[in-house]
Write a protein that binds this DNA or RNA. Structure first.
Lengths: 124, 124
DNA sequence: GTAAGTACATACAAAATTGTAAGTGTAAAC
DNA sequence: GTTTACACTTACAATTTTGTATGTACTTAC
């Protein structure tokens, strides 16, 4: 089989094991330190920037803004800005975002619910 | 309610939104760049170090070794070493690891299967 | 009138992650 | 006899991520 077929197959069937596959980039955004938590926080609800920041323990303004921009560019997060002062901006998930967040939540909830069974989470 | 109750609640009910919660560390290991892929690769099968390295596109020896050690310390990965030369080491998932990997796989497969719907994955 | 809240952007520094290259010790393949 | 494979480890450098501090422009509460 010629090399063109491989290139074609890679475009038709995304595979994270392939370094250049775009799924790698999306995966890294969704599984990023603050990306996971932002998706979790926005599941099924709308939140303002500051509320999000207070909700997600330890996140800085800079990191939260950056994370939300990345997720928005991917199409997971929707940003609605009202032209008032002081500023008012609402964040929510798109249908796509809700679907991704559901998967992420499944993992996170499993970890939270099984922490006691995880040796690496004990002591220390 | 006194502060002791909060501390107690945090130990009884793990919450990733709390910066100091141990679930954060475990989450970061499982969602780390190479951690995700190692868990995916080992689902339902045993693999040797070099085979894993060839399977996971773009991973260096250093990063793979480090990732496997972290996941082993957490209790997700089992390392079996045979005392022969050249070295022979087999990696597999513990029951715990299989459960975590299942959740991770669910997310990864969703991304792979929905890449075309994700605006941020198009073009570049 | 002073402080706090809103939603960021920006410059800079610090810290963490990741990669590269080399070394180990033996054995089988060429 | 030279190369290749195995499963790493270590030192060092480059890169990326993350934090800190500051500024913005205006309004409401004290």
């Amino acid at each position: 089989m010629p090399a063109t077929e491989n290139a074609l197959a890679e475009r038709l069937v995304p595979n994270v094991m392939v370094a250049a596959c775009p799924s790698r980039r999306i995966l890294s955004h969704v599984t990023s330190r603050w990306g996971v938590l932002a998706l979790m926080a926005l599941r099924g609800r709308t939140m303002r920037f500051s509320a999000l920041r207070r909700h997600i323990g330890g996140v800085s303004e800079r990191m939260l803004a950056q994370t939300l921009q990345t997720l928005e560019a991917d199409g997971f997060v929707i940003r609605r800005s009202f032209d008032v002062v002081p500023p008012h901006v609402e964040y929510s998930l798109s249908e796509l975002g809700e679907e991704a967040a559901e998967k992420v939540a499944s993992l996170v909830l499993w970890i939270e619910g099984n922490l006691e069974r995880i040796p690496g989470a004990q002591g220390d």
